Amino acid sequence: MSKKVLILTGDAAEVLEVYYPYFRLLEEGCEAIIASPTKKTLHTVVHDFVEGWDTYTEKPGHLLQSHIGFADVEPSDYDGLIIPGGRAPEYIRSDANLPRILRHFLEADKPVGAICHAAQVFAALKDTSFFEGRTMTAYNACRLDVEQLGASYAAETLHVDGKLVSGHAWPDLPGFMREFLKLLK
């Protein structure tokens, strides 16, 4: 039986951080399900690094159909979870269904992949005990978010702590997916 992985995202997700994991999971024979606050066509964005800028730039990306709304997600149906970054995490974290979804994966010790701004989503839990004593990385602008969870911020761009795989940004996707797939198998 193939593995089933949930991808939690929304509008303004970084296009590579959604598409790369999605197609990589399909390539491995996994079932990949994209969930968003409501089932809809999502608008992704392209973040890039430009010399001389202190932050990234953003342009519209591709359209992407989600398969299911958060309210309809039954987390026990899934073997793993991936949370892409971009700006989507800053608003999906306020969805009332998000804590129950996240809590399931963390309590069941299933593989969780969080890249870029995804660490912001974990603020929805209110209970930071899942992260106390752990180490994770994220986009450098999210260092405070990681530390507010009670985790230590790893300077390296890819970090694995138990079943939690975290990455800095889209250039880290090859290693991020390699490590996530190791845990999933």
Rank of each mutant, 00 (worst) to 15 (best):
A108T: 08
Y153N: 10
T157A: 15
D95H: 08
V121I: 13
P99V: 00
E132G: 01
Q120M: 10
A138I: 00
R100V: 12
C116M: 11
R134E: 05
G133D: 09
K110L: 14
T128C: 08
I101C: 04
S129D: 04
V146H: 01
C142G: 01
L144C: 07
Y91G: 09
H159C: 15
C116K: 02
K110D: 05
S152V: 11
Y139E: 01
T128A: 10
A155P: 08
I101R: 03
Y139K: 05
T157D: 15
A151V: 10
I101F: 04
L125C: 07
H159L: 15
A114W: 07
F105E: 03
G133H: 03
A119G: 09
T135H: 02
A118Y: 09
A123C: 05
R100F: 13
C116E: 09
R103S: 15
Q148K: 13
D145C: 07
K110R: 13
A151W: 02
Y91S: 13
L106F: 08
G133N: 03
I92M: 00
A114I: 12
A118F: 07
T157H: 09
Q148T: 11
R93Q: 11
T128G: 05
R100G: 13
T157W: 08
A123E: 11
T137C: 06
A118D: 11
G133Y: 01
Y153W: 03
G113L: 10
N97G: 05
A154N: 06
V112H: 13
R93S: 06
I101W: 00
A138Q: 02
Y139T: 01
I92T: 02
L125P: 04
D127A: 13
T137I: 02
A123H: 15
F131I: 04
Y139D: 02
E156P: 09
I92N: 04
N97C: 12
A108F: 12
P111C: 06
D109A: 11
R103Q: 13
I115C: 14
A119P: 10
L158I: 11
H159K: 15
D145M: 05
I101D: 00
D127S: 10
S94Y: 10
R93M: 14
S94G: 06
S129Y: 03
G150F: 09
D95P: 10
E132H: 04
L102G: 02
N97H: 11
V112C: 11
A96C: 06
P111E: 03
N140V: 14
A151H: 07
L144K: 10
D161A: 13
F130G: 00
A154H: 05
R103Y: 07
F130T: 03
V112P: 11
N97R: 07
R100C: 12
D109Q: 12
L158H: 09
L149D: 08
F105C: 09
Y153T: 09
E156Y: 12
L106D: 03
F131T: 03
S94F: 14
D161R: 06
N140W: 14
E107G: 01
N140C: 12
L149W: 00
L102I: 04
A114K: 13
H159A: 15
T128Q: 06
L106V: 06
I115D: 02
A96D: 12
L106E: 05
S129W: 02
T137Q: 04
V160R: 10
A114C: 15
V112S: 08
A138Y: 00
R143Q: 13
R103A: 14
G162W: 09
P99L: 05
D145W: 04
V146P: 01
V146F: 00
A154I: 06
L158S: 07
G113R: 05
V112W: 12
A119I: 06
Q148A: 15
A155M: 15
